[in-house]
């Protein structure tokens, strides 16, 4: 069974049709990078995958479960789909440790000690164990984003969604965050990454989706998509960013 299956997805904001018709499939352990010009609908596409945006038409299946069906509990499905945001969205009134443990404490039946131990291990994974007691306001952008990744991982998701995770970072911070993502990809996490980091897409992507004008214009392995783009729009976009 595919991890994610998108069928004829449509999304409108009022009269503006942002996603016109998109279909794709993401298999287990695949890393999918989504690129495209700003305003093309790539972030909206990602946000439809965990229904942060209400879907206007079509279907999205997560592990075979249709998330557009109101009978299916979206909160339970979201526990398996972690998300990392461009603006980090850490909870500023909670320490790093509390940020990471909040959801597992409320949603998983486990004892506090074990959950905190695991949070601590995750902080080790993103290289920030010494910041467990710090508050988000005391962290740099890159550290915030790594905490945000640890927070998402604390729920043991099967899929991780990244919405331009390095776009709000100072250039010298980008590497640390990408390194964490690369490690995650190597460990076999299924990932969908909306990104402007073409280097990351080329290196880590199993497939790259080029989105423009509300459609998935082109979808291919990075070598082909970057090296031998088929569509004019893909060529035009790549000529500007590469």
């Amino acid at each position: 069974m595919s991890m994610i299956r998108v069928e004829n997805l449509k999304k409108s904001f009022g009269n503006i049709e942002v996603i016109k018709d998109m279909s794709t499939v993401v298999e287990e352990k695949e890393v999918i990078c989504v690129i495209g010009p700003s305003g093309s609908g790539k972030s909206t596409f990602l946000r439809c995958l965990n229904r942060l945006e209400e879907i206007s038409g079509g279907h999205v299946y997560i592990e075979g479960v249709d998330i557009t069906d109101p009978k299916n509990n979206i909160n339970t499905i979201r526990q398996n789909v972690g998300m990392v945001f461009q603006q980090f969205n850490l909870f500023p009134h909670m320490s790093v440790m509390e940020n990471i443990t909040l959801a597992p404490m409320k949603l998983k039946k486990g004892d506090k000690k074990a959950i905190e131990k695991k949070a601590y291990d995750l902080l080790g994974k993103v290289g920030l164990q010494e910041k467990a007691k710090a508050y988000p306001g005391e962290l740099s952008g890159g550290q915030k984003q790594r905490v945000a990744i640890a927070r998402a991982l604390a729920m043991d998701p099967k899929i991780m969604l990244f919405d331009e995770p390095t776009s709000a970072l100072d250039p010298e911070m980008v590497g640390d965050v990408l390194d964490v993502m690369k490690q995650l990809a190597r460990e076999g996490m299924t990932m969908v990454v909306v990104t402007h980091e073409m280097g990351f897409a080329a290196e880590m992507g199993d497939r790259v989706l080029f989105i423009d004008g509300g459609y998935i214009v082109e979808e291919n392995v990075p070598k082909e998509l970057f090296g031998n783009p088929q569509h004019e729009r893909t060529k035009a976009f790549l000529s500007k960013v590469l």
Binding site: L52, Q79, N89, L102, A103, L107
Partner: peptide
């Protein structure tokens, strides 16, 4: 974004 982050974790 605060609400989105919390909802994305599965909190109702």
């Amino acid at each position: 974004g605060q609400t989105e982050a919390a909802r994305s974790l599965g909190l109702n």
